[in-house]
Design a protein around this nucleic acid. Sequence first.
DNA 1: GTACCGCTTTTAT
DNA 2: ATAAAAGCGGTAC
Length: 192
Amino acid sequence: MKNNDQLWRLGGSDLGLLVHRDFKGLVDKTIIIRISSFLRKFKNINIIDYTEPDPLTVVRMAKIPYDNLGLVMLAMLAIPRGFVASYSDLAELLNMTPRLIGLFASKNPMPVLIPCHRVINKDGAIGGYSAWHRDGRGIKALLLSMEDVKVNGMKVSKDHFVDPNELKDNFYRIYNYYHSLISEYHSSEQSE
DNA sequence: GTACCGCTTTTAT
DNA sequence: ATAAAAGCGGTAC
């Protein structure tokens, strides 16, 4: 916990998101914590109620790497709140394999802000979640139910899956915006 | 270079 | 229901 970190409360629950920013003010890391136990250690912390920013805002405020992990993160941002996509949906979109998507998901440096909890198994099973020390699947299910995705017996019904074409459209919109920011950055660097 | 890993999926018992 | 192989970019050696 650094002095410039923020704590966001998720959906009025006891779950919080610790948000770390780099020297430029870009978010580069988030950690999920339990607020009640966290406050026992750290006093006088300002808690902000979290409302989800739209994907383009996240692209602007977060540090998304220019590599395959970054692509997977952008694809996750393309899944709207209240929906899920399967590992194989993302794999098809990005020409990867489902297991590779899972591997990158496990490397997601900013859980919740980059909604890797919305990626689940093709058969509706909730899939893994490592952004929590244990019972990661429980936290994943909780995050999903907070955004009105019904989880019954660790399974999500088919009607919560985002339409692949919509996923694709969202992804390209987000990717183009991301790319325009990158080019902007490079051109401003050259002109200095 | 090689070997192993992981938030899966598919196929075969 | 459970087991195993395929799959592939990263990472570590």
